[in-house]
């Protein structure tokens, strides 16, 4: 399945619109799910998703299957776009207001649930739950909270090296638990 998607993306690189349509159907639910988690606003998340898919189309020519899977490639573009959006000043201010209103940074689930309606609530993250609380916290602040690891360190009052190690060890354990290997 993964390899098939890699082939679809390689076809997109040749300007194949039918392949792009197929790729869209396969990856957009994940791209949008990611964007919703990061930007925490359905409308903005759809804008980000559109930007992501246009960038995927434009730069598919740079995709090299030997360097990684198509899903991870698209996911990287999606995460960066979403994080860039949040890091832009305006979004940061809105987010700060929300965070302040909720009285803290930790309750991501409640933030998501209050902002995102219905079926878009975060599911129970079985994978992340398998990590230590400190690993999970550092990863969530970085990945879903759009923080640089310096900001994570500041936020948690920890040395940079500790944050770096927690994120790395946590991600490796997560990959191992999920059997995401290569």
């Amino acid at each position: 399945m993964g390899e098939e998607l890699d082939a679809v993306l390689s076809n997109v690189a040749t300007g194949d619109r039918a392949a792009f349509s197929k790729l869209y159907d396969r990856v957009v639910p994940v791209v949008l799910g990611l964007a919703v988690r990061v930007v925490r606003d359905r409308t903005i998340a759809e804008e980000v998703t559109q930007e992501v898919m246009v960038e995927v189309w434009r730069t598919a020519t740079r995709y090299d299957p030997s360097q990684g899977s198509a899903l991870a490639w698209v996911g990287t573009i999606a995460h960066r776009r979403a994080v860039d959006r949040v890091r832009s000043e305006q979004a940061a201010r809105r987010r700060a207001e929300k965070v302040a209103a909720e009285g803290g940074l930790t309750p991501f689930d409640s933030v998501s649930e209050s902002v995102i309606e219905g079926q878009e609530r975060a599911r129970v993250r079985a994978g992340l739950d398998s990590l230590s609380r400190s690993q999970r916290q550092a990863i969530e602040l970085a990945y879903f909270g759009s923080m640089t690891y310096r900001e994570v360190a500041e936020n948690l009052g920890l040395p940079l090296g500790t944050v770096k190690t927690r994120i790395r060890d946590g991600l490796l354990k997560l990959a191992e638990n999920l059997g995401v290997g290569s």
Binding site: V30, R37, G68, G75, A122, L174, A175, V180
Partner: peptide, 12 residues
């Protein structure tokens, strides 16, 4: 690659 795929697996 492994880490990115693992995080994408956390996405609903």
């Amino acid at each position: 690659e492994m880490m990115r795929r693992a995080m994408l697996d956390e996405i609903e």
